[in-house]
């Protein structure tokens, strides 16, 4: 059974951590400075998420967009959940084909380390859902 019930939950929790990232004192400025349009296609439940990392404000939206993606990632929503909990090795996931990526590799590599300080924030975000499922 998938962790997220529907698209709205993917948006609430994974979209939520990106929105929180925008406000993070260390990661926020770095994400905005990256100048990258990230598109993530989550499946089961399906959710197309756009993260526009740019000044003056990072935007996180759901659904199709007229923007052009610099990087597109595709993964199951459960994989996204495990990644943000710090329990999923992205390199291994890419090797297994569980995560697919399009776009310049050097830009992807620059984004990855920015996410680690946000793992505790994500675990806090999903704590209520974890408790409800326990």
């Amino acid at each position: 059974m998938a962790f997220f019930a529907d698209t709205n939950e993917v948006d609430k929790y994974i979209g939520g951590v990106f929105r929180a990232a925008a406000e993070h004192p260390e990661s926020g400025p770095k994400f905005r400075a990256a100048g990258i349009n990230l598109r993530v296609l989550y499946t089961d439940p399906d959710c197309e998420m756009w993260i526009l990392m740019r000044e003056p404000a990072m935007e996180v939206t759901i659904g199709p967009s007229d923007e052009t993606a610099d990087i597109t990632l595709m993964m199951r929503s459960d994989t996204g959940d495990k990644y943000w909990r710090g329990e999923y090795n992205l390199a291994v996931g890419l090797a297994k084909g569980e995560v697919k990526a399009k776009g310049p590799v050097n830009k992807i590599l620059k984004l990855v380390p920015l996410t680690k300080p946000l793992f505790p924030m994500y675990r806090d975000l999903v704590a209520d859902k974890d408790a409800a499922q326990a």
Partner: peptide, 16 residues
């Protein structure tokens, strides 16, 4: 050029 290239001591970016 392995899809899952990991390198020792280069953090989360290269496979933790």
């Amino acid at each position: 050029q392995c899809a899952g290239t990991r390198i020792f001591g280069l953090g989360l970016t290269f496979g933790s």
